[in-house]
Nucleic acid binder design. Structure first.
Lengths: 235, 235
DNA sequence: GATCCTCTTTGATCTAGATCAATGAGGATC
DNA sequence: GATCCTCATTGATCTAGATCAAAGAGGATC
């Protein structure tokens, strides 16, 4: 079989890292690698939960929407992240590729069974889920109580941290120059704002020399302390 | 020992239901029952995660706040719910009793170890965490994209469902008359609104005969269909 | 290098919900 | 049953951010 776990690029970071080589061979038999084009959906809100997967390459957004088209991004997924709803019957959100991506897909039934038989794997999955829960709760404070300026500042700081491991010019665990993996509309959908408000807040930060914007996608943090102050209390 | 798990009121609903009687005896040795007065905190945001617990009686709110006092309720806990952050070093939120309550407390280190040795318990914990994650994500859509009217309607429906198992006059899995376990300010903190806006929305629903308000704490749903429509799209 | 196209910025105006300010309505306590 | 409380409602006003409406600003494609 071609999709061999042994040579998988995320085998050390994904939940599979809990498995030894015999177990990897077993789970490999249950999986198939699938390519997804940017914009294509992997899972639909409201559908039965039939598959779960590991992100191997690319990026995904997790969204939930209202009938009239209002959309909220409720999560982002990067390589080694786990996607889908094990041990449950419905998917409560849509998962869409933000860039051309590759995932390692399992049927949910197979996966559920395999997890029950491998407590170490289940433990990894629990840890991931707990971490994700913490992250999601943090964004509830942002969505419920923060102003537009605070939201944008918090977002830029989180992105600089989250993208940090994949690059170079790092100061204190934060990346000082980074490329946003999405456009303004999607930033707006993450922050519960409109595209215009996001744009205005960014230019404001630029005017105050807190950040620089070499182009639409790239952001450079000039004054991380100031940005942190704005994120926490709008100062 | 007095706090015997065998006679615990939540033993069939809490994660402990995964354990047989020998295991219950073992976990009993690790636990102590603690009473908490309404308003008292059990866990503080930012503190090291030293304890975890099961709610036995009462209710708790889970909050996160900004320096200037703005507060967001990011979760609610009822009897049989699990509290705390296992397998992690910090608590990211404060847990406060909303009513006089009882919890069954474990040291986090003991609990972590016990869970690792009992995969069925870990599985229950994972299921709970996944369900909670779904719930929290649903509220991200509410906080990020719903109007005040939609938020209040969604809230009333969720409360009627969540309180349903503990009472009588049920229609289609929903409780038609129920007592809110908290005041208007806390409803506002759940919905990311102000107390005045919540109050206005409630009187509006009353005027339109969608709900009745016998008194400040009690709510009666008169037209569940209408309420559902309002919750989903503001109709 | 002109013509699209899509995405972003900027400006003007509007409005949902916040804020400010009384007023009402139980429920303890004396 | 008067005096405090605390909490909820109602009203008047204000404002952050939405909405509406142009104008830039790259990149593709020809």
């Amino acid at each position: 079989m071609m999709n061999n776990c042994e040579q998988c690029v995320v085998k050390n970071k994904a939940i599979c890292s809990a498995l030894d080589s015999d177990e990897l061979i077993a789970i490999n038999r249950l999986s198939r690698k699938v390519s997804i084009k940017a914009g294509q959906a992997l899972i639909w809100e409201g559908d039965d939960s039939l598959i779960v997967a590991n992100v191997v390459e690319g990026a995904f957004k997790l969204t939930s929407s209202l009938e009239d088209g209002r959309e909220q991004i409720i999560g982002l997924l990067y390589p080694s992240d786990f996607v889908g709803r094990p041990f449950g019957d419905k998917n409560e959100y849509t998962v869409t590729a933000l860039a051309d991506s590759k995932v390692c897909v399992f049927s949910r039934a197979d996966f559920d069974q395999f997890v029950r038989d491998h407590p170490d794997l289940e433990h990894k999955l629990l840890q991931r889920t707990l971490t994700e829960l913490d992250r999601v709760r943090r964004s509830m404070l942002l969505l419920g109580r923060k102003t537009a300026a605070e939201r944008v500042a918090s977002f830029l700081l989180e992105m600089s941290e989250r993208l940090a491991d994949s690059s170079c010019s790092v100061v204190g665990g934060q990346l000082q120059l980074f490329a946003l993996p999405f456009g303004r509309q999607q930033v707006a959908d993450i922050l519960g704002l409109t595209i215009e408000t996001v744009s205005r807040q960014m230019t404001q930060l630029k005017k105050n020399d807190v950040i620089a914007l070499p182009d639409h996608r790239n952001v450079q943090i000039l004054d991380a302390g100031r940005l942190q102050d704005i994120a926490d209390a709008g100062a």
